[in-house]
Amino acid sequence: MLAECTTIDSMISLGGHGAVMVVGLGEVQVTRDPDVVLASFGLGSCVVVCVFDPLTHVGGMTHVVLPSSGNRPVSSTYPGKYADSGTTHLVRWLEGQGAVRSRMMAKIAGGAAVTRGTMPENLFDVGNKNVLAVQTALEREAIPVVAYDTGGHHGRSVWFWVRSGKVMVRTAKNVTIQL
């Protein structure tokens, strides 16, 4: 398992001149630099949405916290907080950077149920609801989900190579998978 950890770290360090850009809770990042690796660490019920255009190598990541904004205003600090508005924000930003929607593909990860039930009642199953809301939002934008690693009971960290569209997921159980 240690070898797998090293694999991700070495892939990042050998990945060229680019840097790892961390996408925190509720944040959205888009880049045109194909050497950049977008990453999000320690996801529980949150869901990471990675969208890329394989021709222009424009890619972006949203770190979704909750399924729906409802009628609440979306804070400019956390434009990715909600699955619906966060996905829309990501897609518009990608288009602004030259990505073409008909070529865009998505990979998603996260949405775990970390506790065995201890949580406020209105947040029951929030991880699963986040995943469904992200799928709906992507469907509305006509962007296919080509790979995913969602659900389960453990936290995840996610790395997204914008150049290739490759996504690596490492779980709290120290299992690494490629999407």
Binding site: G44, T115, T118, V126, A172
Partner: peptide, 22 residues
Amino acid sequence: PPDVILDMAGAIMDVAVVEIVQ
């Protein structure tokens, strides 16, 4: 009732933070 969780700190904090950020 308490829940005892062995996991990434971020994943555990998510549970509380998700409610607050609403």
